[in-house]
Design a protein around this nucleic acid. Structure first.
Lengths: 330, 330
DNA sequence: CTGAAAGCGCTTACAG
DNA sequence: CTGAAAGCGCTTACAG
């Protein structure tokens, strides 16, 4: 492999000049610049990134820590972050934390070792609450999960508004007795639950809600219990894609029909929600946009370390499908 | 940040000794080793990876190039590769090629720049056919897509057998007139098509098949045409998840029922295939296992660069669901 | 078993 | 605008 020294020798300049041409820093006479570029092409020179990173202590690498890339929500975010990163000449290092605080800490340490220039992170509730951005040598942008305002840059869905929109829709469709299931592991579930109760209260309705571990089984079990009770809700609102799946299975297992026996609405426009019969009414999150915006915050923070902390709330989109159809009989 | 020099000073040894203790290479007296380890902990020393990589020219990083991580098939593989890599103290760099030969070449070059110790790659048909493993300074393991035997290590599904298994199943269920749609962009589609025709021939049946670009729209359009023809097939076999989606939409648009009017079977146990009514009969690919095996091949190749090239074929699993139910009337 | 020293391939003040 | 030279933080023959 050709080194910068070989290029310098062949072009009849110093290594400093080659470096300046390649990095675009510092002034170089056009004549020399052309000569260097020509030689670089002729020799097929490609810079050694390890050397560059050691010397400059800039890695042009960002870390992305999500709970599980197999969750379509994070898959889309990952794709957005990667697209933007490569486009900027940056790399991305993806880690799956499995909602495990130990893995979160492990991977944050790893990011330090890699000397990344920033991290995009969807923390568990505990980690979010006690996160100290000053403990890390790189800027962090939180995604998806609400954090203490002012602590760190973040991009989240307007969770309260989204939950309210679902309730608004259900009420408009004629549903009154509404039950809610929310995830207990993240601030996201808590915020959606707040919006849920706010909206109900506004309509003078009361509704019961449950906080559950974010698994299909937990939702299925709880909803089977609800469906068997004499006081069965007319509609169910659940706070994530896994719960939607659990709810669907519970309703089917109970031999009930959606929406005739019970309506079902929730979060995340996973591909399958449009394909089941009836299609499920959901809040679609702007996943790609969330990833893109997180990268933008990171890049801007790198430019201006002292700028005020920003939390960007993006609006979800209500996608109306058959699972919340208006009932003609009443 | 503490450097190795600080540790050496504090421990009263040379930097060489610290390095030996940390890397586990070379003999060190137990007494010194303990002292060094103690000092490392006390100082919170963490090695500078850029320096280590520059000096040793080992990066402990592998590249993963897939067409799109949003495809659940690749999402699972990506997760498997990442799990294994981090477990081994390695990193992974993920790239999305979008089935674009230009991006494939771009990312392969990027992997050279990163000096990765290996690449796992799902190439397009053209790239697979003319791939020259000796052109790269790192070992490559191909996944998913068949390559010229003997050219490069690979892990693929036994595509012919899987397609035959679907035909066997359809025939056993009483279907005779079977149409097939296969992807034209990858060797995978071609191999499945071969298995399809082999099996039909074995039963003395003839069937028509089409090669299409791997998009939902292409499949939907072609299948709508088939369904409208007087000589409509009794069953459809399609070669990937996107086609399955297109087929489903075409059948629904035509107002037909599965399997009463037309049966539908295909590849990839995407989550939604179990949730639609009726559930779709598919070949489930051992996705996680494919990723795991690819990493194993890579690690073994690193140990023994001269070992013979290996192509590992993994068996798919037939998952029978309602979309190929036996018809009681005939 | 251990240390002194060279050097991996760059970037970047510094001097001119 | 350009070059000579230092040095980023490690690893690794080499010598003992």
């Amino acid at each position: 492999m050709a080194r910068i020294k070989d290029v310098a020798l062949a072009a009849g300049v110093s290594t400093a000049t080659v470096s300046r041409v390649l990095s675009g820093s510092g002034p170089v006479r056009k004549e020399l610049r052309d000569k260097v570029l020509e030689t670089v092409a002729a020799l097929g020179y490609r810079p050694n990134l390890a050397a560059r990173r050691l010397r400059s202590s800039r890695t042009e690498t960002i870390g992305l820590i999500v709970s599980d890339v197999r969750n379509p929500f994070f898959t889309n975010i990952s794709r957005a972050v990667e697209d933007m990163a490569y486009q900027q000449g940056m790399r991305v290092m993806l880690c799956n934390s499995d909602e495990d605080p130990k893995k979160e800490a492990l991977y944050l340490g790893l990011m330090e070792d890699e000397n990344v220039c920033g991290v995009i992170f969807s923390p568990t509730l505990g980690t979010a609450r006690q996160f100290d951005a000053t403990a890390y040598p790189f800027p962090v942008v939180m995604i998806d999960r609400p954090v203490a305002v002012g602590a760190v840059d973040a991009v989240v869905l307007d969770n309260r508004a989204a939950a309210r929109a679902l309730v608004d829709h259900l009420v408009a469709q004629g549903y009154r007795h509404i039950g809610g299931i929310f995830g207990s592991a993240s601030g996201t579930g808590l915020a959606r639950r707040e919006g849920f109760h706010q909206a109900l209260q506004q309509y003078g309705l009361t509704g019961s809600s449950q906080l559950l571990a974010p698994t299909v089984a937990a939702a299925q079990q709880e909803i089977e219990r609800w469906l068997a009770s004499p006081n069965r809700p007319e509609a169910l609102l659940v706070s994530n894609g896994l719960f939607l799946l659990g709810a669907l299975q519970a309703v089917r297992a109970a031999g009930l029909s959606i929406p005739e026996d019970v309506a079902l609405v929730g979060f995340d426009d996973d591909p399958w929600t449009a394909l089941v019969e009836p299609g499920l009414t959901v809040i679609a999150q702007p996943t790609y946009e969330i990833g893109r915006t997180a990268m933008e915050l990171l890049l801007q923070r790198r430019e201006s370390p002292e700028r005020p902390v920003r939390v960007i709330e993006l609006a979800g989109t209500l996608i109306k499908r058959g699972s919340s159809r208006m009932l003609t009989t009443a």
